[in-house]
Structures are given as structure tokens and as C-alpha cells.
Design a protein around this nucleic acid. Structure first.
Length: 864
RNA sequence: GCGGGCGUGGCGAAACGGUAGACGCAGCGGACUCAAAAUCCGCCGUAGCAAUACGUGUCGGUUCGAAUCCGACCGCCCGCACCA
């Protein structure tokens, strides 16, 4: 008996169903997470958005992934924390204020309202009761409190420093925010300025931040490596070179080197233009002053650095070689020496450092090779244009000759440790980091005010905790460039909290990366009014089990957050060091670009396609004129290759958008948004709906049941495994496979019992990805309650194993036949069955194979 | 320059060292329809009527067996970049 052709069910109507189920979830409050719950905790977090105006497809992809994990873990019996908030301070609000004469706060909150609505239309299983916005005084109040705590603990300092100045945004940028010499947001060439700034002492944690990377096993190797390189640890020696005549208070120059083994190859000493000794020398030497100015002008602009010639100024000074007082070396001021790294001075070893070689060749200083590669003849080894910076054996180096570079390093370090110059050892071992302290002062209005009052008598004085928050003034005007806080005298002029005299508020606000450095901790108890965190809550929920976001934060946000969490531990606000136990960096959403005949970008919505002889051609919808199909690139307003999530949700529904975002590419790779792909996803939504309804009416004799049940449980096991590993594209493929199996079974002989069981599993498998459709199907199957609250089905292990297995048979590594044997057949039995095969006998021609390899459950290979 | 990653059909991609191309998209042929959409059936790496041969950037190696491991090269992508 076969199943009757099912009466066609109505089409699934996402527009009707999605808001209905969103309301049902909200009403049941099933995504609101209690802190006191006996179930094991699971904290899944996606990087919170900046409220720029509207969500984009990148958000859809990011939040769809997080939602799959959240819903899956909930079904698996975890108490899941899945919150959402707004990274709400930042420059675009001020730019909008300037362009449109709106208040940054009003602009930001209007955007939040819009974007909250958009996220809600996606059907995300978020706990909206924990929503936070970083621009809310109820949030930044605690950030100010922690700033003061950090200050007291010595984790914050104020000092003048050469900083990166963004001339377009009129603000300072941290090193991490300068990309290719340009501001990360404005794209302007960054200038160098000397300013007094507040710094977080991230370098205090350099060793710990580096060492702990090894423990972050569920982070991408790539991100760990990037952070490792950014922290940039090196181990070397700090060596003092005695000046042959003192200059003011200077009687020696301190040099940092990782290659003390090459010390006998030294030809000169070079100091940075900003080195105090250079300043002392330049006092009565105008030509040196001119040279120093020229070095500063090259400054930090990257293009200049790339092409800049090595330039030096011979000071006429000399220093004594630390291993031979009779040996004198000239001292140069050189444009390639950085004041910010090491001691701001280097010894030049031209033979083994390319920069030193370029410099020495230019100024005729010569070179003496002191390290010979193992495969070269020491007596013939010379260096001309290319320095040798590898390992080898020491030559031309007196007592070091014949040693390896490693041995020579140790020998020099030990010798110089014993030598004394002006009462202290000539050299000491020194660990040096590339990482600099985090400058957090920003000369902007729309940020968290730094809670400090400057008093002429008392200096910078912390605002008393009882006076927090230091709120931003409500009324601001942006009719002049610069920071409006500086012009707001009513806000700015306050009495000193210590002496009561007239004083002024700090007008700099904090870098917005501070705001995002602890929001994940705030989510654990966002209702607290008197403290940033509740220790029980924060220690319970942290670390975040799965954090998902873009790779662009590999260094900036992810390093700052790791620092901040450590600083919070130092000040008692957290008991953990690492904020994110598992990290996943998802790829971008990319799209084809289109240009009309005039060379203007055309948005996808205005394109119509035609297929001619297999080639796809694009035309403008309105004008009908041809449009050139360009490169596939990240969706961006400038290239107009943007698809608005609202439009997609309106025409296809959120489930279709989510399904497509998860289906095509591996999640860490870029996904290409295509109209065909979305339509494919939409077709599958309808197909699931038809299948489930057909299953509910099935009435076959059950001949197909076993196969169907096996397919269902295979998919169940596979999808579970793939969600755990965030391989969403494979989850999708497994669901398709099950849908195909259910389709086949329904066509013939599946019983209603087996069909509805398989359909039920199908529905639960899609529920994390297409939650609204799943609810509608769940109801159609007559199941009670919400699928969002249903437990993940149990895999019946017996259904995953076959009684008989078919193994491929290879002869000399080429597949020639198949052999079917019982599942538990031993190697001998498999061999016998294989040799009995007709195809095998034909090849063997009566001879015995030279070797038989049986890999149980896998393959048989005969060597003849 | 330094560090890392990736090269598989027309496309997105699968593949514990074990049958390369699962699954989807596009395409082609057919059914249903007056027609279209939707849906359904079939085909779909290359060559060949077929048996079969050849195929995972190129060349070599290890192995009974390599997309996968090793070496060299080519190409693309990402990060850092005068860090001593």
C-alpha cells in the first residue's frame, strides 16, 4: 500500500507566522535567563553593534550564528545567557550632530530603537531584559568608578607622550587604531603630536597577556598569533657604552640589543632624534636642530617610513666599546632609531643588520662579519649589500670565536654583567615588549567622561565616588570644530573636591574601546545600581563560553578586553582573568558590484538579469541600459552593493535570511549574497512545510520505516556534532539529506508513526536555524508546547550502525570492486570475501596477492 | 622584508591518510499546464558510443594507498612592518 498524494497544504506564510511566534516567545519569557538556576550555565555572546542606524547583513550573519548556538544549548539543557546591547558612544553621533543639527543622544537612541526592532524581527532568542547601552549614565557611571579604582591601583597614569593625532576626527588614536599610518575610522594620515594623556598600563600585563594565549585553546590560532606578534616579546641585553667626553649629565649611552653576540662587529652607535642626548647636543648646534626637525616631520606617516632613506648626523662624539675600552665608536643621530622602543639607541652592526648595513654603506663605515653561516668558509665570508641575520659560528670576535650565536650571547651577557661602569654593571638582561600602554584620552564629546578634576593647587584630583556619574551635559552645540566640553564653562568649572578652590573638569572622554572592554561582565547583572558587577554573578557566568564576531577585532577589542578583565580582577570586580573561553571569527558578507555606463555604482535592487548563451548579463531596471558586473566585494555603502535585511525579511521572512546566511559557505569564510541563493533558501522553507504536512498524513505500510529512521538519527547525530563545532554549512547539508530521505520515504511506504518521528526530528534540527518555521511545523505535527523549549532528541545509537557494510576494494590503490560483509566480520573473513569476488579473481589470474591490507570498516587494498 | 593562511566541477563547497566532488546554486532534458509560476522525475568533473582513461595550482618525495603528510616552486589572501 502506498501513501495517497497529500492534499497540497497552504503555503507557509512567514509574514504571518514570524511575528506570531515572536510574540509567543516574548509572552512566555522563555529567553529571560535567571542567575540562580541549577542547570549548567552557557554564555553565548555576539559582539554588540554600534547603533549606526540600521542593521546590515553582517549583523544578520553574526547574530544568526550566535542564535543557533544559544537555541541548541538551551535544548541541550543549559541555562543559556544570550544578551544584547549597544556600543553606543562614538564619533558618528557627533558627525550626525554637526551635519544635521541633532543631539548625539537623540540620534543614538533613535537608531537603537530602529535596530532593536530589526533584531527582534529576526527572531533572535535574546534576553532583552538585560539590554544595556554604553552611553547610558547607568552604565558609564560604573566605568568611571573602575577608572578611579584602576588609578588607585596604579593601573592608570597620566603623562605627556608623542601621540597619534587624527587631523580629521580631531582626536588622539591608540597605536592599535592606526592602520597603515591612517586613522582606523577617518582614514586620514595620522600626525605626531606631543600631548598629556591618560594611559591604561596594559604593559604591566604584557607577560601575562602573552603567556595566557597558550591556554585559549578554543580561540583561532590566527588570532592568538596576531596578539602574540602585537605584544612582541623579545629578550636581549641593555648595554651601557661610556662616552669619551660627557655632555651635560650624560656620560654613557644605554643601548638595547637582542644580538650581543655581534658586538665585535659594531661600527657605530645611533640614537633617536628624540633622545635626550640629541637634545642636549643640539642646544648649541643649529644644524643638528635642523636635522632633528627633519626627522620629526617624517614622523609616523607610513608611506614616508617605507621610502625614507637612512639618514644620520655625525655628532662628533665617540663611545668606548664595552668589551674593549681602547676601541672607540662614532655616535650618530639617525632617523631610523625609534625613541619609543628599547632605550632609543642602538649599536650598529652592519654585517648582520640590513638597516645598519644600509647606513654604514652610505656613510662609509665599513663592516666586519662576525657570524659565519655553518655552510660557508669563514675565511672567505664577506658581506656587501645583504646583511646576514641568521645563526652561525662566531668569527673575528676574539674570545667568542668558534662559538655558536647562542653560546656567544650567553658569554657576552655573563662577561658584561661583571664589568662595572660608574658603580653599576655595564649590562643587564632585559625583556622588551613591542606593546605600548593604551592611551585612552579622546578629545571628543560623545564618550564616557574621565572622572578627574584639575586643580592648580592639587593637580589632577579624582571625582569622589559619591559624585559619580560625571554626566555629559545635555545641551551641546557643534557649530565650532573641537571638543564642545572645553567650551562648556558651566559644566567644566567646578570646585576642587580636595581643597575647594576653583578647578576644571577633565574634558577628554574615554576611548570607546573602554566601553566594550567590560560590557560582557555587565550583562551578568545589569540591574545593579551601586556596583559595576556582582562578584557571584560575574564569576558564575564568565568566561563567555562562545564569543562570535569579526576578525577585525583580533587585536583591538579582544586585547583590550583581556587587559580590562585582568584589571577588574586586580580591583576586585571580577575573579577571572580571561573574558572569552571560546572565540569564533566569522567571515564577511560580500556581494557582486555593478557599474552603469557612466561608471556610477548601481545597487542590486535596481538590477535585472538576463541569461544569453549561458552568460549572465545585467541591466538597469528603469533605463534598461546594460550594467557591468564587477568584483565581489564586502557590502559597503560606497559601492552600493548592499542588501537591506529589512527588505529580505519583508519579502522572504527572517528564517529564509537566516538559513541562507548559514548555508552556503563555512562560517569563518566570506559568504556571497546572491538572489538565487536566497530563493533556494525560500524554496526549502516551503518544502519543509509541505514535507511536515505530508508526514502528518502518511499512512504507508511501513516498508520504508527502518531506512527513514536511520536517516533521521544519522542527521540528528551529525547536526549535533556540527553545531558543537560551529560548522553550520554542514548542518544545513545534513538537514537537506534528511529532507530528501523523508521525501523518498513518503512517496512510498512510510508509516505515519515513522514519518512523523522523522519529521519531528527534522523540525527540531531546523529549530535553532529557522525557529519560526519550526514552531509552525511543530504545531502542525500536533506536538505540545514550543519547540524552542523542547529538549534535543536522543540519538538511538542502534540506528547508526549497519548490519552489513560495503567496503571499497582497491587493487594497487585503484578502486576495482566493492565487497559487502557483516558489520562485525574480522579481517580474515573480509579477506576471504574479497578474494572470492569475480572482479578480483579476474585480476589475480589464479595467483595470490603479494599483500592484503584490511582496514576494518574502511577499505580493502590488494597489492599484486 | 617578517609572520600566517589558502589553491578541489560553471559557482558556494564536502571528504578520521582509505570509493574525490556529499549538500546546495546554476544549467540541461522530461512530466504536469492553453501557457507560465510552483511542483515532480532524470542528467550534470573532463574525454569517450562504451569498456575505460585522466583528474584536487606545478614538480618531486613518504606510503599498500595522498586533496590531506614532507620538500621546492607558482598564484592569491590576511596580519605586522625602520621593534634593534
Amino acid at each position: 500500500m502506498t501513501n495517497p498524494t497529500p492534499t497540497a497544504p497552504e503555503r507557509y506564510n512567514a509574514k504571518d507566522a514570524e511575528p506570531r511566534w515572536q510574540a509567543a516567545w516574548a509572552q512566555a519569557k522563555i529567553f529571560e535567563t535567571p542567575n540562580d538556576d541549577s542547570r549548567p550555565k552557557y554564555y553565548v555572546l555576539e559582539m554588540f553593534p554600534y547603533p549606526s542606524g540600521r542593521i546590515h547583513m553582517g549583523h544578520v550573519r553574526n547574530y544568526a550564528m550566535g542564535d543557533v548556538v544559544a537555541r541548541y544549548k538551551r535544548a541541550r539543557g543549559f541555562n543559556v545567557l544570550h544578551p544584547m546591547g549597544w556600543d553606543a558612544f562614538g564619533l558618528p553621533a557627533e558627525n550626525a550632530a554637526m551635519e544635521r543639527r541633532v543631539n548625539p543622544r537623540d540620534w543614538t537612541y533613535a537608531n537603537i530603537a530602529t535596530m532593536r526592532g530589526q533584531l527582534q524581527s529576526m527572531g533572535l532568542s535574546l534576553d532583552w531584559s538585560r539590554e544595556i547601552a554604553t552611553c547610558d549614565p547607568a552604565y558609564y557611571k560604573h566605568q568611571q568608578r573602575m577608572f578611579l579604582d584602576f588609578l588607585e591601583k596604579g593601573l592608570v597614569t597620566r603623562r605627556t607622550a608623542k601621540v597619534n593625532w587624527d587631523p580629521v576626527d580631531h582626536t588622539v588614536l591608540a597605536n592599535e587604531q592606526v592602520i597603515d599610518g591612517r586613522g582606523w575610522r577617518s582614514g586620514a594620515l595620522v600626525e605626531s603630536r606631543e600631548l598629556t594623556q591618560w594611559f591604561f598600563k596594559i604593559t604591566d600585563f604584557a607577560e601575562d597577556l602573552l603567556g595566557a594565549l597558550d591556554g585559549l585553546e578554543r580561540w583561532p590560532e590566527k588570532v592568538r598569533l596576531m596578539q602574540k606578534n602585537w605584544i612582541g616579546k623579545s629578550e636581549g641585553l641593555e648595554v651601557r657604552f661610556a662616552l669619551t667626553r660627557s655632555v651635560g649629565a650624560h656620560d654613557a649611552v644605554k643601548v638595547y640589543t637582542t644580538r650581543p653576540d655581534t658586538l665585535f662587529g659594531a661600527k657605530f652607535l645611533a640614537i633617536a632624534a628624540d633622545h635626550p642626548l640629541a637634545a642636549a647636543l643640539s642646544a648649541d648646534r643649529p644644524e643638528l636642530q635642523t636635522f632633528i626637525e627633519a626627522c620629526r616631520r617624517i614622523g609616523t606617516a607610513q608611506e614616508a617610513i617605507d621610502t625614507a632613506e637612512k639618514l644620520g648626523f655625525d655628532t662628533g662624539l665617540t663611545v668606548r666599546h664595552p668589551l674593549d675600552p681602547a676601541w672607540e665608536l662614532p655616535v650618530y643621530v639617525a632617523n631610523f632609531v625609534l625613541m619609543e622602543y628599547g632605550t632609543g639607541a642602538v649599536f650598529g652592526c652592519p654585517a648582520h643588520d640590513q638597516r645598519d648595513l644600509d647606513f654604514a654603506n652610505k656613510y662609509g663605515l665599513g663592516n666586519t662579519p662576525v657570524v659565519c653561516p655553518e655552510d660557508q668558509d669563514p675565511s672567505a665570508f664577506v658581506v656587501t649589500d645583504t646583511a646576514y641575520d641568521g645563526d652561525g659560528r662566531l668569527i673575528n670576535s676574539r674570545f667568542l670565536d668558534g662559538m655558536t650565536t647562542g653560546e656567544a650571547f650567553e658569554a657576552v651577557a655573563n662577561r658584561l654583567k661583571q664589568e662595572v661602569l660608574a658603580g653599576s654593571p655595564v649590562a643587564a638582561r632585559k625583556v622588551q615588549f613591542r606593546l605600548r600602554d593604551w592611551g585612552v584620552s579622546r578629545q571628543r564629546y560623545w564618550g564616557c567622561p574621565i572622572p578627574i578634576i584639575h586643580c592648580d593647587a592639587c593637580g589632577p584630583v579624582p571625582v569622589p565616588v559619591a559624585d559619580l556619574p560625571v554626566k555629559l551635559p545635555e545641551e551641546v552645540s557643534f557649530d565650532q570644530p573641537g571638543n564642545p566640553l572645553e567650551r562648556d564653562h558651566a559644566w567644566r568649572n567646578v570646585p576642587c573636591p580636595r581643597c575647594g578652590q576653583a578647578a576644571r573638569r577633565e574634558t577628554d572622554t574615554m576611548d570607546t574601546f573602554v566601553d566594550s572592554s567590560w560590557y560582557f561582565a555587565r550583562f551578568t547583572a545589569p540591574w545593579l545600581q551601586d556596583a559595576p558587577t556582582d562578584r557571584r554573578a560575574v564569576d558564575h557566568w564568565l568566561a563567555v563560553d562562545q564569543y562570535i564576531g569579526g576578525i577585525e577585532h583580533a587585536i583591538l577589542h579582544l586585547l583590550y578586553a583581556r587587559f580590562f578583565t585582568r584589571a577588574m580582577r586586580e580591583t576586585g570586580w571580577s575573579g577571572v582573568a580571561e573574558p572569552f573561553a571560546g572565540l569564533f571569527t566569522q567571515g564577511m558578507v560580500v556581494h557582486e558590484t555593478y557599474k552603469d555606463e557612466a561608471g556610477a555604482w548601481v545597487p542590486p535592487a535596481e538590477i535585472r538579469f538576463e541569461s544569453e548563451e549561458g552568460t549572465r548579463r545585467a541591466f538597469h531596471v528603469k533605463t534598461g541600459s546594460p550594467v557591468a558586473i564587477g568584483a565581489i566585494e564586502k557590502m559597503s555603502k560606497s559601492k552600493k552593493n548592499v542588501v537591506d535585511p529589512d527588505d529580505i525579511i519583508a519579502s522572504y521572512g527572517a528564517d529564509t535570511a537566516r538559513w541562507f546566511m548559514l548555508s552556503d559557505s563555512p562560517p569563518e569564510r566570506d559568504v556571497i549574497w546572491t538572489e538565487e541563493g536566497v530563493q533556494g533558501a525560500a524554496r526549502f522553507v516551503q518544502r519543509v512545510w509541505r514535507l511536515v504536512n505530508a508526514a502528518a498524513q502518511a499512512g504507508g505500510d511501513g516498508a520504508a520505516d527502518l531506512g527513514l529512521r536511520k536517516a533521521a538519527h544519522r542527521a540528528l547525530a551529525g547536526v549535533g556534532d556540527d553545531v558543537e563545532r560551529l560548522r553550520f554549512n554542514r548542518c544545513v547539508a545534513q538537514v537537506y539529506t534528511l529532507a530528501n530521505a523523508l521525501d523518498d520515504a513518503l512517496r512510498g511506504t512510510a508509516s505515519r508513526e515513522a514519518a512523523t518521528e522523522a519529521a519531528g526530528i527534522l523540525v527540531q534540527l531546523i529549530a535553532p536555524m529557522m525557529p519560526h518555521l519550526a514552531e509552525e511545523c511543530w504545531q502542525a505535527l500536533g506536538r505540545s508546547g514550543l519547540v524552542a523549549q523542547a529538549s534535543w532528541p536522543q540519538v538511538e545509537a542502534a540506528l547508526l550502525v549497519e548490519d552489513e557494510i560495503t567496503l571499497p576494494v582497491q587493487i594497487n590503490g585503484k578502486k576495482r570492486a566493492d565487497v559487502t560483509v557483516p558489520r562485525d566480520a574480522d579481517a580474515k573473513a573480509v579477506e576471504a570475501a574479497t578474494l572470492a569476488l569475480e572482479a578480483v579473481q579476474k585480476v589475480l589470474e589464479g595467483k595470490a596477492p603479494r599483500k592484503v591490507i584490511v582496514v576494518p570498516g574502511r577499505i580493502v587494498n590488494l597489492v599484486v
